[in-house]
Every structure is written in structure tokens, then in C-alpha cells.
Simulated assay, not measured.
Amino acid sequence: MSKAMRWIGGPIMALSVVGAAAWAGAGQEPVASRVRPVQALDVSRYQGTWYEIARYPNFFERKCVGDVTATYEPQADGTLRVLNRCRKEDGTEDIAVGIGRPDVKGGSTARFKVTFVPKWLEWVPWLYANYWIVVLDDDYHYAAIGEPSREYLWVLSRTPKLDDNTLYQIHAKLRKQGYDTDKLVLTPQKAAQAAAQ
């Protein structure tokens, strides 16, 4: 099994891990769902590197102890190249490379389907997971990534740290969409903070 399959990392969920069970409900959102992606996304402003500030604990990042980043690079065919990095307990870096495809259902440009499977498997639809930008700062300074089931959640920032007031505002917006913000775990960003000093 490749590194990319062992660690999906950052704000990405790979349906290849959950298999056929996830496929059974693919594309179906609960009628009463309050999870809504932001309506408009400027990909040119969203591209680049984001620091993971907090996340719901998940299987994909079980080996990541800090310094988690996600880098997005628009491609000529309209897809996004996704590069996730994290620091493991032994100090080594884990890297996963994936692809994001726009999913414009519901009229939002902030919905993507993302996968980290090998290129020869990218045609399989159930190997893609929902990647919804559910909170986005007007200046593209911070964002929150989720999906319809509310099982996964990430808070991202352009800087390795957010002040308490900004975090409070993000939490309030997430709670309005039904997320339990008490489940969020802060991500240490020691390397980036040390480099900034």
C-alpha cells in the first residue's frame, strides 16, 4: 500500500478507505441538513499553502503529530492538485498527493470531490470524497472544510496560528451548521512558528 493510501492527511477524506458503505449514500444529502458550502470560491485566491489549525480526530492523520499543511495548485484541466504534509512522531515528514475535481451541485463553486488513489484508479467515482468549503474569510485568511455527514472537519489558515477571537468566530459559524466544535483538536505548528521568529 502506498504512502498516499496509508495517510490521506489534511482536509481530505478518501472514500477508498471506507469502501462500499460510503458509496451507498454517495451524492445524497439529508433533507434537513444545515451543512452548506460557501456559494462562491475564487480558486486563484484559494490556491497555495494552508496551515491546519484544528481538526476532528480522524484515521487518516493518526500518525501526524503536527506541522500539517495542505497546498492546492490549479491545473489546466480545471482540477486541483492537492499536496498534504505532516510531521510524524519520529520527526519524519509524511506526504500525500491527490486530485480535486469541481462538484458544482447546488450552485456552489466551493464543492469538490477529492481522491488520493493512484492515477489509474481516478476514474472510479466512489473513490472520491466530498470536500466542502463551509466557512471562508472574505480575505481568504481562514477556511473550514467539511462534508454533509459532519464526520470530518478541518480549520485552515494562511498563517500557522489564529487569534482566539478569530477562532471563536469560526466556531460560531460552524455551530450554526450543526458542527460540534468541542470535538476540534488543535494542531501544533511548531516548525512554521519557529521559522517565523
Rank of each mutant, 00 (worst) to 15 (best):
A21M: 13
L184F: 06
V17Q: 14
V124E: 06
L156W: 03
D77M: 09
I8G: 08
P148E: 07
T49D: 01
L184V: 02
Y140P: 03
I95M: 09
G9Q: 07
G25R: 11
Q28E: 11
T109N: 09
K176I: 02
K173I: 05
A195L: 13
Y140A: 05
K63P: 00
T79W: 02
F59W: 14
V124P: 09
Y140M: 04
K190M: 10
C64H: 02
M1E: 13
P102S: 08
I12V: 15
I12D: 09
A32Q: 11
V117K: 06
A172G: 10
F112V: 00
R55N: 11
V17F: 14
R36E: 11
A4L: 07
N84A: 04
A143R: 01
K63N: 12
D180R: 11
A96M: 09
E52V: 13
W23P: 01
R158Y: 03
R158L: 05
A129W: 00
W154M: 02
W23S: 11
E29I: 14
L121W: 15
A20T: 14
P74G: 04
C64T: 05
A70K: 00
V185D: 03
L136D: 00
T181H: 05
R36M: 10
A32N: 13
D77S: 10
A96L: 03
E151S: 13
T109Q: 09
I170Q: 01
A70I: 05
D103L: 04
K63F: 10
V82H: 02
E147H: 11
S33Q: 08
T187D: 10
G78H: 08
D90P: 01
T79F: 05
L156H: 01
A194M: 12
G146F: 00
D137I: 02
V65C: 04
R158E: 03
S2P: 13
E61N: 15
A32M: 11
A196W: 03
V135W: 00
L186I: 06
K63W: 09
Y179S: 00
A20S: 14
W132H: 03
K63S: 12
V135S: 04
V97I: 14
I53A: 03
I170A: 04
R62Y: 08
Q189H: 09
V135L: 08
A195K: 14
D90R: 07
T79V: 03
V134S: 03
A172D: 14
R81N: 08
V43A: 12
D163Q: 06
T69C: 07
D139C: 07
D180Y: 06
Y140T: 04
G25I: 14
Y46C: 07
P11I: 06
D137H: 10
G91V: 07
A195Q: 15
T71F: 00
